[in-house]
C-alpha cells in the first residue's frame, strides 16, 4: 500500500503528466468556449420551424416507402416520376433506419447535445488514448532510464511487485483522470446545451449508446496505457514505445496495406490493428473487400463485411496482455545496469 501511495505521488508529480493534463484542460476549454460562442438558444419560432421540417422530412420518407409497397402490390403510381424505388422496399422503411429526422437536424447555429455528444466524446477518447499511451510509456521509460527503478529496487527488491505496482498505479490514475475528464466534459456540454443551445430529445437509448461509447472508450484508454507501459519497459525507454508505434503505423498500416492491395489479399483490413480499434470503439465497422466480387460477372455481389466489437476486444486484449506478459518476463530477468 505504501508503494502504491509513493507511486501515485511520483506519477502525479511528473511534469509530463501535469503538462498533458494542462493540454487536456486547454483543449477542453477551447472547445467549450468556441461551442459557447458559436451557439445560441433556439427561439420558439426556430424550434417550431425545425420541428415542422423534421416532420415534413419524416412524412416524405414514409410516402416513399408507401409508394414502393404500392408498386409491389401492383397499384398505379401517378406521381412517381423522378423517384428511384429499390427492388427491396425495406431499404426505404423509416422504421428500419438508423435514425429518423429530428428537429435538431434543422437548427442552424445551435449546439445540439444529442447530435454532437458522440463526436465530442470520440474526440476526448482519442486524446485520452494518446494521454494514456504517452503517460504509460514515459512513466516507466523515464524511471528505467534515470535509474529511478534501481533506486526503488534497492528498497523493495521484488521486481514483479514493483513493476506491478507501477502498472496498477498507472492504470488506476489514468482511469481516474479519464472518468473525471469525460464526466466533466459531457456535463459541461450538457450545460452549454441547456443555456446556449438545444439539448435535443434524449431517451434511454441515447444515454445507453453514449454510455456504451464511454465505457468502450475508457477501456481503450486503459489498453493504450498498458501497451505504452509494456513497450517502454521492454525497450527501457519512452522513445522505444513511440518508435514502435511509429514503425508499426508506417511499416504495416501504410506499407503493409499497399503491399496487401498489390497482392490482392482478401480482406486486408482484417489484418490491421486500426480496424479493430475502430470496431471496438464504434461497436462495429463495415469494410469493403474489393477481391470478394472478382469472380462475380453478373448479378449483385456484396463485398462488404463487418468487424464487431467482440473480436475487436479479443484482439486488443490479447495484444495488450501479450505485450504486458513479455514486459514482466523480461523485466524479471533483466540486468539493470
Amino acid at each position: 500500500m505504501n508503494l502504491i501511495r509513493a507511486e501515485v505521488e511520483r506519477l502525479g508529480a511528473r511534469r509530463f503528466v501535469q503538462l498533458m493534463i494542462v493540454l487536456l484542460m486547454l483543449a477542453f476549454g477551447v472547445t467549450a468556449a468556441t461551442t459557447l460562442a458559436g451557439s445560441h438558444q433556439p427561439s420558439a419560432v426556430e424550434l417550431a420551424e425545425a420541428q415542422r421540417q423534421a416532420a415534413a422530412n419524416l412524412r416524405g420518407l414514409e410516402l416513399q416507402h408507401e409508394r414502393c409497397l404500392a408498386r409491389d402490390r401492383g397499384e398505379p403510381l401517378p406521381d412517381d416520376e423522378g423517384f428511384y424505388l429499390p427492388p427491396d422496399c425495406s431499404e426505404l422503411d423509416p422504421a428500419l433506419r438508423d435514425r429518423l429526422p429530428v428537429a435538431a437536424d434543422y437548427l442552424t447555429g445551435v449546439f445540439t447535445f444529442t447530435r454532437q455528444a458522440e463526436p465530442l466524446l470520440y474526440f476526448l477518447v482519442a486524446y485520452l488514448v494518446l494521454f494514456g499511451f504517452l503517460v504509460g510509456a514515459s512513466y516507466i521509460g523515464a524511471d528505467l532510464n534515470s535509474g529511478g527503478v534501481v533506486n526503488l529496487l534497492l528498497w523493495r527488491p521484488r521486481r514483479l511487485t514493483v513493476l506491478g505496482a507501477k502498472l496498477g498505479t498507472l492504470l488506476g490514475a489514468v482511469l481516474t483522470v479519464s472518468v473525471l475528464a469525460t464526466l466533466a466534459y459531457l456535463v459541461t456540454f450538457w450545460v452549454i446545451a441547456q443555456v446556449a443551445g438545444y439539448p435535443g430529445p434524449t431517451n434511454v437509448a441515447f444515454w445507453a449508446e453514449l454510455g456504451a461509447i464511454w465505457g468502450r472508450g475508457l477501456t481503450l484508454v486503459l489498453l493504450a496505457a498498458a501497451t505504452g507501459f509494456a513497450i517502454a519497459t521492454m525497450g527501457r525507454h519512452t522513445a522505444a514505445a513511440l518508435g514502435a508505434v511509429a514503425a508499426y503505423l508506417v511499416v504495416w498500416e501504410l506499407g503493409g496495406r499497399i503491399v496487401l492491395q498489390i497482392l490482392e489479399v482478401a480482406r486486408p483490413d482484417q489484418l490491421m490493428l486500426a480496424s479493430y480499434v475502430g470496431a471496438w470503439l464504434a461497436g462495429e465497422v463495415r469494410f469493403w473487400d474489393s477481391t470478394a466480387c472478382r469472380t462475380v460477372t453478373d448479378g449483385y455481389c456484396d463485398g462488404s463485411y463487418t468487424l464487431t466489437w467482440q473480436p475487436a476486444l479479443a484482439v486488443l486484449l490479447l495484444l495488450t496482455a501479450g505485450l504486458s506478459a513479455a514486459a514482466f518476463a523480461l523485466f524479471r530477468r533483466r540486468d539493470l545496469i
Binding site: 505504501n2 508503494l3 501511495r5 509513493a6 507511486e7 505521488e9 511520483r10 508529480a13 511528473r14 511534469r15 523515464a142 534515470s146 535509474g147 529511478g148 534501481v150 533506486n151 526503488l152 534497492l154 528498497w155 523493495r156 527488491p157
Partner: peptide, 30 residues
Amino acid sequence: AGRVGAIVESPQFYGNFTGYRTLRLLALAG
C-alpha cells in the same frame, strides 16, 4: 532489504523533484 542501505554508482534522481520529495517518496515506498 530494510536493513541494507545502498548507493550504486552515481544514482540518478528526477530533476524536477526536490531533494526532500525524492527522499519522502523513498521513505513512503519503504
